[in-house]
Computed example of a mutant assay.
Amino acid sequence: MSEHAPVPPSDRRTFVAKVSAAIVGGIITLAAPIAGLFPLLDPLRRRSDTRGMVRVTSFAALPEDGVPRKFPVLDTLVDAWNRTENVPVGSVYLQRTGENAVRALHSVCPHLGCSVGYNAAGRGYFCPCHKSSFALDGSIADPKSPSPRGMDPLEAVVRNGEVWVKFQNFRKGSPERVAV
């Protein structure tokens, strides 16, 4: 006959130890994938980059006689994980129209997107690409102009002596002003 050691019955301590080990192992196993979801889903919980008003210049920098001046628009761009300060996103023409009022026009031609210049002699704007001409208020000056609409006005306000513009781009070649 062979002698076998009797099998001890499972007691509560070994049961609790095994259950505790399974729970701790499960938590450790799930912790890494859950922690990995946070950076993956971080862009989804952030607000979308809806552009608000951007400070362009001081009101004192605008000529008092109403002559428009071109200014670069520098904005803070935020993508999924990066924030970049003072990025050139375009340019605008600013014109003093009153004691505390400003007219802002996008400096890009609505025809095909060429850069519009200010013609001081003609007191208006001129696109060198296809000979479109615009009045000081941005309307089409020449009826034969190939531009489908006048220059795009932008919302502008003067706050505490600074000019703020809501900068946005519009679809080119369309008679309707559609923001893109």
Rank of each mutant, 00 (worst) to 15 (best):
C127W: 02
T97Q: 07
P6T: 12
D65S: 00
E155N: 13
P9M: 07
M53D: 12
V92F: 00
S91T: 04
K18R: 15
P43D: 05
D137P: 08
S139G: 10
E176C: 05
P9Y: 01
P33T: 05
P63T: 08
V163Y: 01
V108R: 09
G25Q: 08
S147W: 01
P175I: 02
D75N: 13
P175L: 04
P175R: 08
S58R: 14
N86E: 11
D152T: 15
T84P: 00
T57C: 14
L136S: 07
A120R: 13
A141P: 03
S132T: 06
G52S: 12
I23Q: 03
S174H: 14
T50L: 11
G98M: 04
G36Y: 04
T57M: 05
N86C: 00
V178T: 15
S133E: 13
S48W: 06
S115N: 11
S10R: 12
V24H: 02
P143Y: 03
S2I: 12
N169C: 00
F15R: 14
R159E: 15
T97L: 00
Y125R: 02
I140L: 15
L154P: 04
G150N: 09
P39F: 01
L62G: 00
D49F: 10
L44R: 10
K18I: 09
S91I: 00
A120I: 08
L136C: 06
E162H: 13
R47K: 10
P128K: 05
V24C: 09
G113V: 01
P39S: 01
G90E: 04
E64H: 09
A120F: 00
C127S: 06
I34F: 12
L74F: 13
A61G: 00
P146N: 09
T14L: 10
E99V: 12
G26C: 03
A104C: 09
P63A: 09
L105F: 03
H111G: 02
V7D: 07
P153E: 10
A21C: 01
R12N: 08
D137N: 15
R149Q: 08
R123H: 13
L136H: 08
E99N: 13
K166P: 01
S91E: 10
C127G: 06
L62S: 08
P9V: 11
E99H: 11
L77D: 07
F167Q: 04
V67H: 07
D42K: 12
S139E: 09
S115Q: 11
T84V: 11
R171V: 14
G25N: 12
T97R: 09
P175C: 06
E155D: 15
D11L: 00
S107R: 02
S139R: 13
W81T: 08
R149C: 10
E155H: 06
N169L: 10
P148L: 03
A60E: 15
N160Y: 04
S2T: 15
R45K: 15
S48C: 01
G150R: 07
L30I: 12
P68W: 01
A141E: 06
V19N: 02
G124L: 07
G66H: 06
R103W: 01
V180T: 13
